[in-house]
Amino acid sequence: MTGIDSVQLNQVIVHKVGNPSRAEELKLSLNPLSLNDEMVRKLLTKYFLGSFNENETYRFTHISDVNLNEVFNYVTQLFEKPNEFVETSAILAQFLYSKSTHVKVKEGELYVALFDDVPYDGDFVQAVGLFKSESKETFLKVFPHGKSWEVIQEEGVNINKLDKGCLVFRKHQADGYVVCIVDATNKQNDAQYWVDDFLQVTPYTDSYHNTDKYLGLCKQFITNEYAEKFEVSKSEQIDLLNRSMDYFKSKEEFNLQEFAEEVIHHQEVVDTFMDYKKNYEAAKNFTMEDEFSIHVAAVKKQQKSFKTVLKLDKNFHVYIHGRRDLMERGYDELTNKQYYKLYFDEES
């Protein structure tokens, strides 16, 4: 998240939340942190907010009424009754404890925080933060001992790696607020208790969401389904990945029919892609629009994960950026090996 220098960290409290299925305890704090040290305040603010992508937004939801979402209600209490901060934070910790029963859920510290002057959509707003640290790292501490130095081992939290986070902007309350999330641990479907069980959030269906999800869909389809259902080479997979990314980089608007005709081409592959899209939406529990404005930030994010490297044994890595027609694949009977021919104008 950018522009956090102006953020004011007003209150923060820490509770220890274990896993009840392993008989680990819930230990509640009676008082917020003192925050007398300005450097500690700044480090905490960086730790809490530095990992969020403010373009990727969610909202609290519920199967019948958002007002029945527990965390939505507790966050509203924190906004409206800051004098009851300690009591409300304890209820949040108890609720998280009740949702931490999966075998893969780790014990950790839950931080509940109140912020002012958080940048959002050209404005500065109040925000509530919920953060959980689960991973501990080993640090070496060097300290003076007489006329020498000694080293001891200590365990602590890496302030550059937020495990789990939820930042709730005080905007659009009737729609479930505007929420950003981080979930860097326990990413398996059976252990996503933070997003699904505790927070119960769903993405806002906006241009960023649609762009991000369509590119994710394309990558999964080409990497898995396309290679499985059709007899294609790795270079052909990479070519389709490149054409998909080029479409999103060169267009301002997405149109599903146009994408199918310009990028996928073959009707049999198009039909398979459409079926895969339906199953993808059902599995992810959201719907993607057939037409929307393409979001540049989402394209840049996804571009990092589009691997366009052709690995040939352990000897060669070929980076393919386009022009599949300038590659020729064959088999040499004399050496009993496959080969690629690459056609080019000049080398550099």
Rank of each mutant, 00 (worst) to 15 (best):
V7P: 00
Q11W: 12
I13K: 01
I13S: 01
H15Q: 08
K16Q: 08
P20A: 04
R22I: 07
S34P: 08
D37Q: 11
V40Q: 15
K42W: 12
L44G: 03
T45E: 03
K46S: 08
F48V: 05
F48D: 01
G50I: 06
S51Y: 12
S51E: 13
T61C: 10
H62E: 09
F72P: 02
V75E: 02
L78S: 06
E80M: 11
N83D: 14
T88C: 08
I91G: 02
L92R: 00
F95K: 10
K106P: 05
E109K: 07
L110F: 05
Y111P: 01
L114W: 02
F115K: 05
P119I: 15
G122V: 14
G122T: 12
Q126P: 04
A127V: 07
G129M: 06
L130G: 00
S133R: 01
E134N: 10
E134G: 06
T138K: 12
H145R: 09
V151G: 05
E154D: 10
E155R: 15
G156P: 09
N160C: 11
C166Y: 05
L167F: 07
H172V: 13
V178Y: 04
V179M: 10
V179G: 03
I181E: 00
V182T: 01
Q192Y: 08
V195P: 01
P203A: 07
P203Y: 01
Y208S: 00
H209K: 09
D212I: 03
D212Y: 03
K213T: 08
G216N: 06
A227D: 02
E231I: 13
S235P: 05
S235K: 09
I238P: 00
L240H: 00
L240P: 01
N242M: 09
M245V: 04
Y247E: 04
K249R: 15
S250H: 15
K251E: 11
K251P: 06
L256R: 04
E261K: 13
K278D: 13
N285A: 10
E289M: 08
K304N: 12
S305C: 08
T308L: 03
T308A: 06
D313H: 14
N315F: 15
F316I: 14
F316R: 14
V318S: 05
V318K: 04
V318F: 11
R323Q: 11
L326G: 10
G330M: 11
T335L: 10
K337F: 08
L342A: 08
F344T: 12
E347M: 15
E347L: 12
